[in-house]
C-alpha cells in the first residue's frame, strides 16, 4: 500500500504536499472560527439580562440563563407574524417563479421562433439593471394598483427578475434534442413534452433555482422596507431592524430575534445542503 502511494508520488500525483495541507487546514480553521463566532456572540447576548450585558469583564457564558428576551420577543413584538410572512411570501414567490421561469427556459432553450434572439438578449441585459434604482417608480406602480401593504406588493415584482431563466435554460439546453423529437413524433403536445419529459429531467436544476429564489427573498430588505408600512405585515428582516430604531436599543431582544431568524433558513440549508452547495450554479450563471 505504502509502496503504491510512494510510487504514484514519484511519477506524478496531484496530492497536495504536507506543508500545503498544514497551511490549508490553518486557514480553514481560522475562517471557520471567524464565520461562527458572531453567531455564538449573539447567542450569548440573547440569554443575558441588561445588567450582565454591560458587566465588565464580560461574561462569555452567563452564569444564570435569562429567557426574558425571548419571552418579550413573542409577547411584545410581532415576531411570529414576521416569520409567517417571510416564509409564506418566500414560498409563494418560489413556486410561482419556478413555474414561469421553467416555461420560459424551455421556450428559449428548445423552441424555434421569430424574435427569440431579441427576447433572450433583452432578458439577459436586464440582469444588469440595478433593482435598487427602480424602487421609486415601482412604489408608485404598486400604489396605483392598490397593492401597497399587501403580500402581492412583495410577490409580484419578485417574479420579474430574469436571472433564474438562464439557470434553468442551461439545464434544458444540455438535454439531447432527439429525446424531444421522438416524443413529438409520438404525438405529444409541447405542453406534455414540457411537463412530462423536460421537468422531471431537470429536477435538480429546479431545486437549485428554488433554493436560491427562497434565499434571495429571505434576505430581501430594501423593497419590503419601502412597500410595507403595516407592522404586522412586515417580513423578518425589516421587522427586526425596526426593533433597533426604538428609543432605547434593547440588545438582548434584538439578539434573540436575530438568532431565531436564522433558524428557518438553517433548517432549509441542512435539508437541501447538496443543492445550496451545488457547483452547477456557477457554471449555469456563466452559460
Amino acid at each position: 500500500m505504502w509502496k503504491l502511494i510512494g510510487k504514484q508520488r514519484n511519477v506524478v500525483s496531484l496530492r497536495p504536499t504536507p506543508p500545503v495541507i498544514t497551511v490549508s487546514y490553518s486557514v480553514l480553521f481560522l475562517a471557520a472560527i471567524v464565520s461562527i463566532l458572531p453567531f455564538l456572540y449573539i447567542l450569548s447576548t440573547s440569554v443575558k439580562d441588561t445588567q450582565s450585558l454591560f458587566s465588565y469583564p464580560p461574561e462569555w457564558i452567563p452564569e444564570q440563563l435569562f429567557w426574558g428576551n425571548y419571552v418579550k420577543l413573542f409577547q411584545e413584538t410581532s415576531f411570529l407574524n414576521w416569520t409567517f410572512n417571510t416564509i409564506f411570501i418566500g414560498l409563494s414567490i418560489t413556486i410561482l417563479k419556478l413555474i414561469i421561469d421553467a416555461m420560459a427556459a424551455y421556450s428559449l432553450a428548445k423552441l424555434q421562433f421569430i424574435g427569440k434572439h431579441i427576447i433572450s438578449s433583452t432578458l439577459l441585459m436586464a440582469v444588469a439593471i440595478p433593482v435598487a434604482a427602480l424602487i421609486i417608480p415601482l412604489f408608485f406602480i404598486v400604489r396605483d394598483m392598490g397593492l401597497l401593504n399587501t403580500y402581492w406588493a412583495l410577490i409580484l415584482p419578485a417574479l420579474a427578475n430574469p436571472l433564474g431563466i438562464f439557470l434553468l435554460r442551461s439545464f434544458i439546453v444540455s438535454l439531447p434534442d432527439e429525446l424531444i423529437h421522438s416524443a413529438r413524433l409520438d404525438g405529444a403536445s409541447e405542453w406534455r413534452v414540457f411537463t412530462q419529459l423536460i421537468l422531471p429531467l431537470i429536477s435538480s436544476g429546479l431545486v437549485v433555482h428554488a433554493v436560491f429564489t427562497f434565499m434571495l427573498q429571505y434576505t430581501n430588505f430594501l423593497w419590503p422596507l419601502v412597500a410595507i408600512q403595516t407592522e404586522t405585515r412586515q417580513v423578518l428582516t425589516v421587522g427586526i431592524s425596526s426593533l433597533k430604531s426604538n428609543f432605547v436599543v434593547d440588545w438582548g431582544l434584538i439578539s434573540a430575534a436575530s438568532l431565531l431568524a436564522t433558524i428557518p433558513i438553517t433548517i432549509l440549508f441542512i435539508a437541501l445542503q447538496r443543492f445550496f452547495l451545488a457547483q452547477s450554479l456557477s457554471s449555469a450563471l456563466k452559460g
Partner: peptide
C-alpha cells in the same frame, strides 16, 4: 464558511 452567506445581511449588520 458558507453559513454566513445564508443569513440576511441585516442580521450580519446587527451582529
Amino acid at each position: 464558511i458558507y453559513y454566513p452567506t445564508l443569513q440576511p445581511i441585516l442580521i450580519a449588520a446587527l451582529m
